[in-house]
Design a protein around this nucleic acid. Structure first.
Lengths: 204, 204
DNA sequence: CCGCTACCTTACTCGGAGTAGGTTACTTCC
DNA sequence: GGAAGTAACCTACTCCGAGTAAGGTAGCGG
């Protein structure tokens, strides 16, 4: 008797939740949200399905938890990088480099954010949209503070453009091992910063 | 007898397929891909479920067909707009304005492209990715032809950035009725064109 | 020891994707 | 006109996975 490990460990809720999120990230990334089954996630965690429902409510709830975790990581990485940088240009470049650094070390989370959000319905989409909106507003504030010539009516739009540019360039970036994050950041800087700061301000 | 419409019309395949795609676009846009059932689509078309499977193979296949239709519309709109424009700047601006014009008149298709792709798995994602790749390469070619100072190693990246910028700005755009498409295009032009063409070319 | 709570289970229901196999109406050729 | 062939269409299933009901078991304060 006494199989090598007969009794599965009992865990406090917080720890179990973290473990479930980790496993869910893996499986969602492997199979995609749609093709992932809650049974498989439960199996790999070593627990039964109703536990996950107890803690996260639904499959979409579990995905939302994964997205929130990724967002927290991203936010931590970017805000930490801006510490101590004083000029707006340095701050923007620093933030961009941190962003691409995050991509390097969290490909799994990134795929989740980019690809698996729409699947689940409004809650997950809203969660992702919230990240973008947050980032766009940070950018807009930066522009407002350092580029007073810009028409303020469009500041929001410029912020959005930067977010879109980063998101898309990141997809290109993950497919090219030979590109370092400084270079990716420089590409964005060139278009965004250079294009805005050398303003002919006569568009209107 | 002869009730007002007792016998549902029998249709040739091509026509029925078009009708199915139209209905599917509606329902996917209403409920989201996940929450849409094939039974409901079949009902609203006025046909039984196996017909849809006969023609499109799977739920994802139906979505892919919708995406392809939207892509064709988008391509037609943008290429038509560039007719007769000679300078690169005019061509880019014309393409951008056509793009935002497409958003105006096809909100439904746009939502489909943006939000419902990831749901279905690889085939639908690939279909969307293909649109982006195509557009990015068009942009890159434009830059290559008219901005020879740019490092060609990065042309692809610049193309991607523009695609990302457009995609994101479009989301902002649909939420703001007061912004006309010329203005949206001008915002992109300012960052992209201006940022690239006034090149200090010393980044490297 | 008693009971209370938090962690965890087995064993279901139910809805929707996808299918097997047959039926009906239109066309074509004699 | 009628037989033969085929394209459009249906009913009636299977099966899988999300979500649930109802109940066990370990630790802990009294």
């Amino acid at each position: 008797m006494a199989p090598t490990e007969s009794k599965r460990r009992r865990m406090p809720r917080a720890e179990r939740e973290r473990q479930m999120i980790t496993v869910a990230e893996e499986i969602f990334a492997e199979r995609g949200y749609q093709a992932s089954s809650m049974d498989e996630i439960a199996d790999r965690v070593g627990v039964s399905k109703p536990m996950i429902y107890e803690y996260f409510g639904s499959k979409e709830g579990l995905l939302v938890a994964c997205i929130r975790a990724a967002r927290a990581d991203l936010l931590a990485a970017t805000t930490a990088s801006v510490e101590g940088l004083t000029s707006a240009e340095d701050a923007l470049r620093g933030g961009l480099e941190a962003f691409f650094g995050f991509i390097d070390s969290h490909r799994r989370s990134w795929a989740l954010l980019r690809q698996e959000a729409a699947v689940a319905g409004q809650a997950a989409m809203d969660e992702i949209e919230e990240i973008r909106r947050q980032q766009a507003q940070v950018n807009a504030a930066l522009f407002a503070a350092y580029l007073p010539d810009l028409p303020e009516h469009d500041l929001e739009a410029y912020g959005e453009v930067v977010v879109g540019a980063c998101e898309r360039l990141a997809t290109w970036y993950v497919g090219r091992e030979d590109v370092r994050r400084e270079r990716a950041a420089a590409i964005i800087m060139r278009m965004v910063w250079h294009g805005l700061s050398t303003s002919t301000h006569g568009d209107r």
